[in-house]
């Protein structure tokens, strides 16, 4: 049973977007700050710091997670995914990201990393979402630019694109 003392920095290791990373943190350090300040992964944004705005949402072991309501030391050994991991390769956007660009799903972009993580996770398990379901999912995010409508439009289009590409893959396998 390790006891990590308050005033010292302790080694924290986990996988970030598939790659092993390591840094050091006092027990009180939020995962959001660890990502940004220790690892330089500034794609994750920090808004309200009490779990309401959703800007800092990431995936920890497949679970949507507010990285401001999670300590860095809690995710030692876990699998962490952030917005930096969404694009399939450098210079290419994911289907969801491309749909956001096409539909102006972002303006200032502050909320976008969290919104993308939520939608990416949701669409991976719910390939045919209704608009109501997406609106309920987005209730966990605050966006002050878009009024959400273009975000919904982008997500619905991404869902349709992903579903049709899955169907095509299925038919080629027949």
């Amino acid at each position: 049973m390790p006891r990590l003392t308050a005033t010292q920095r302790h080694s924290v290791r986990f996988r970030l977007n598939g790659h092993p990373v390591e840094g050091s943190a006092e027990p009180r350090m939020q995962l959001a700050d660890f990502l940004r300040h220790e690892l330089g992964a500034t794609g994750t944004h920090v808004g309200c710091e009490h779990g309401v705005c959703g800007a800092c949402t990431v995936l920890v072991d497949g679970m949507l997670t507010r990285s401001c309501l999670t300590l860095a030391v809690q995710v030692d050994g876990c699998d962490v995914r952030t917005v930096e991991g969404l694009a399939p390769e450098r210079g290419r956007l994911s289907v969801l990201q491309a749909a956001f660009r096409r539909h102006h799903g972002l303006q200032c972009g502050f909320c976008t990393p969290g919104v993308l993580m939520s939608l990416d996770r949701y669409l991976s398990t719910n390939p045919n979402p209704t608009e109501d379901q997406l609106r309920e999912l987005l209730s966990g995010h605050l966006c002050r630019c878009t009024g959400y409508t273009p975000i919904i439009r982008a997500a619905m289009e991404a869902a349709a694109t992903l579903a049709s590409s899955t169907r095509q893959e299925d038919s080629t396998h027949v």
């Binding site: 049973m1 006891r3 990590l4 308050a6 006092e26 027990p27 009180r28 939020q30 710091e49 300590l71």
Partner: peptide
């Protein structure tokens, strides 16, 4: 940010 604490 939280005040300092030990973590077990």
């Amino acid at each position: 940010k939280p005040a300092a604490f030990d973590y077990v």
